[in-house]
C-alpha cells in the first residue's frame, strides 16, 4: 500500500519534471528539471530494490551528464539568462514524430510477453552484477569500455592545441 503510494507520488513528480524539461522557456531551468527527472528515476530504481542502479543513475546522469549539460549551457553566452522559445516552425513535424514513437513504445509494451520471475531479489545483487560484468557478459562490457575510450581519445584530439 505504502509502496504503491510512494510509486505513484514519485512517478507523478518524475513526469512533471520531464514535462518541465520540454516546456521550460529558460534552457538552464530545463536542465534543472532534467536533474529532477533523473532523480525521480533513481528513486524508482530504489523502490524496486535495485540500489546499485539507483546509485549509478545518480552518479552517471546527475553527477556527470546533467552537470556537463549545465556547464555547456553556462559556457554559451547567448543562452545565459535569456528566455528562449521552446518551439520553432517545425514543431508539428516533431509532434508527429513524437506521437508516432510514443504509440510504438506503447504498442511494444502491450504486445511484449514479459517473463516475470517471482523469485526474491538476492541479498548480494551487487556482487552478482559484478560477477556478470567480468564473467558471462565480459565481451559487451569490454566493448562498451573500448567505445568510451575511443570517445575519450577523440575528445582529446578535437580539443588539442595545434
Amino acid at each position: 500500500m505504502v509502496g504503491q503510494a510512494l510509486f505513484i507520488l514519485t512517478a507523478g513528480i518524475t513526469l512533471l519534471m520531464a514535462l518541465g524539461v520540454v516546456l521550460a522557456r529558460n534552457l538552464f531551468h530545463a536542465a534543472l528539471f532534467l536533474v529532477g527527472a533523473f532523480f525521480g528515476i533513481a528513486v524508482l530504481f530504489i523502490l524496486l530494490e535495485a540500489e546499485f542502479l539507483g546509485a549509478a543513475q545518480i552518479i552517471i546522469y546527475i553527477g556527470a551528464i546533467a552537470t556537463l549539460i549545465v556547464f555547456a549551457i553556462m559556457l554559451s553566452r547567448h543562452v545565459m539568462g535569456k528566455e528562449a522559445g521552446a518551439y520553432n516552425r517545425n514543431w508539428y513535424f516533431a509532434l508527429a514524430g513524437v506521437v508516432f514513437f510514443f504509440l510504438l513504445l506503447g504498442w511494444l509494451l502491450i504486445k511484449m510477453p514479459f517473463n516475470l520471475v517471482t523469485a526474491e531479489v538476492p541479498a548480494d545483487a551487487i556482487a552478482q552484477i559484478g560477477q556478470g560484468f567480468v564473467g558471462h557478459y565480459v565481451v559487451p562490457f569490454e566493448v562498451a569500455s573500448v567505445l568510451l575510450l575511443v570517445a575519450l581519445i577523440g575528445a582529446i584530439m578535437l580539443a588539442r592545441e595545434r
Partner: peptide
Amino acid sequence: INVGILYLMAFGAL
C-alpha cells in the same frame, strides 16, 4: 546499504 561507497559518490556529485 550494500552500495555504500557508490552512494557516497552519488550524493557527493549532487
